[in-house]
Nucleic acid binder design. Structure first.
Length: 252
DNA sequence: AAGGATGTTGCCTG
DNA sequence: TCAGGCAACATCCT
């Protein structure tokens, strides 16, 4: 479910309920947070940062991470126990199988908004700086680094690399800076497309390489478990370039 | 129909 | 002491 664009869909869904200003009448669930801290507090806003969904009060923020299996219901319940259930006058929000944390402070002070690929504050130049601070990192790892590309998950990683024509095994240092800039732009643009296609219900139909056996040009797609976290990478060795590490750098 | 996955944390081990 | 490995979370798709 949850890469950045899916969390934006969650945020937009609850924003449409117009609950801002309503007091939290009841809060419960199996999450181990201090419910007293937020009961009766007035909802200030909903927000998201990367894969984090944020419920904002005057001086504290609930952070929900859906991890791999998390789900939610709006004005509905599932059979399983709620990890967190929030009741307002006009609506009820239920979250399942997720990580819930209560953060002190306001959302705007808690995060670097320039790293959120879905944010209007996204700053590609800042992403390039952060990338270049990790010259030896593989692109597949760098894209999943939530401090650089907050909200990018495995699907966006694979599809953005395909769009950019770069293999996951490239190190940051080996790739010309113009192509790093292109990758940063493609990642942002694919994330916007992801949001659009997810809303349309056509996300999978638009995958070029993720879970595919052949790329759009008919070449065989490789599936390999790459990087520090051994996540699945799908890539086309013909359409996507591998720069030999150290090319152009003496002594390496 | 068993196995794995759009993800992260935290515990255990060496 | 610390880095790496991997179980846990519980659901859905292939």
């Amino acid at each position: 479910m949850p890469e950045g664009p899916s969390i934006v869909i969650l945020k937009e869904s609850v924003q449409a309920l117009q609950l801002e200003g309503q007091p939290l009448l009841s809060v419960s669930g199996t999450a181990s947070i201090d419910f007293k801290r937020i009961r009766n507090q007035k909802l200030r806003s909903f927000n998201s940062w990367g894969k984090h969904f944020l419920i904002c009060f005057d001086d504290c923020t609930i952070r929900i991470h859906l991890l791999m299996f998390g789900s939610y219901r709006i004005n509905e319940r599932k059979d399983s126990k709620e990890r967190l259930s929030l009741v307002f006058k006009d609506a009820e929000l239920n979250f399942y199988t997720c990580s819930v944390k209560l953060l002190e402070g306001r959302d705007e002070d808690l995060y670097d908004w320039s790293s959120d690929i879905m944010s209007r504050h996204w700053a590609p130049a800042r992403a390039l700086e952060k990338l270049q601070a990790h010259p030896d990192a593989l692109l597949c790892d760098a894209l999943l680094d939530q401090d650089i590309f907050s909200g990018v998950g495995n699907i966006i990683k694979n599809e953005a690399l395909y769009r950019s024509g770069l293999q996951p095994y490239n190190t940051v240092a080996a790739v010309p800076v113009a192509r790093l800039r292109q990758l940063i732009g493609d990642t942002r643009r694919y994330s916007a497309d992801f949001l659009h296609w997810k809303k349309e219900g056509t996300l999978k139909a638009h995958w070029a390489v993720h879970t595919k056996k052949v790329c759009p040009k008919g070449h065989t797609v490789l599936k390999e478990y790459t990087g520090k976290t051994k996540r699945r990478s799908f890539f086309c060795p013909l359409c996507q370039e591998l720069y030999r590490d150290g090319v152009g750098k003496a002594g390496k």
